[in-house]
Amino acid sequence: MTAALEVSALAVAFAGDRGPIVAVEDVSLRVAKGRTLCVVGESGSGKSVSILATMGLLDPQRAVVTAQTLRLGDVDLLTLPATQRRALNGDRLAMVFQDPMTSLNPYLRIGQQLTEVLEVHRQLSRQAATAQAVAMLEAVGISAPQARMRAYPHELSGGMRQRVVLAMALLCQPDVLLADEPTTALDVTIQAQVLKLIQDLQARNGMAVVLVTHDMGVVAHMADEVAVLYGGLVVERAAVRDLFTAPRHPYTRALLASIPAAEHRGQRLQAIAGSPPSPVARPAGCVFAPRCAFAVPQCQAARPPEEALADGRTVRCFRHAELADA
């Protein structure tokens, strides 16, 4: 099956005072139509930069982006002229950010911001665009959509704003939705509402979803496949059940083991010592080795390659096979 979005060997470096700063070293992502890929990682893992690079939203003056493949369905984004690539954003490739105010203009009414999308991408008349925008607000569960069209962003709650941003992203029925921590700033109750909404919309229009999150609970509910990012590298990629039942990379294991839960009350949490690597002082060997409980001298000396396993997953660890048996 052809992927709705395919990224391979993506690398992003920013110009720094003391040489290039590597934000993404080697990231490959692939998601099929109607499926959800969750990208998991902590701050500095390169998850947001990977998404921005995929959208072509990084400033070419500051960021050097290279990739082997960057395809949106049958369109090769690498060879596409910048203006045509830009035209795909918001049309076939849509994005939702963590903070809805990143996408909303505080000075413009909701309606104007929604209809603008359709006027630009679909050359619809104001009237036709308004009708579609109202229908879309209704689809994302906003009551009294006619009245909300005249509201300014500050008149809406955080959850409402994120719904408006989702409506805006989905107006052109994109093939792929990239969502970067769309529920992190929301209460758990509103998070559940927004995640359910994404599931429902996906079931209806069959779009592919790339969901960036740091919450393994969100992953468990939403993902078909998971890519675990650490230090600018995909350290493990697997189907969601495989990842949770048998994590192969020590970082994935540690991440899953560190989640507090009522069952482990009174026990010490299995914290991961240390902090993620700084992009200006990246380890020579495995990026996780300084924090890894299983590291051996080999891990400090060389970067483990990405290894494809029989069950379709990939893992970047010299010791994954022996650790899996242990």
Partner: peptide
């Protein structure tokens, strides 16, 4: 805080 750091601080 990041997930891997939350457990450290809780401990």
């Amino acid at each position: 805080l990041d997930v891997s750091i939350q457990a450290q601080v809780l401990n």
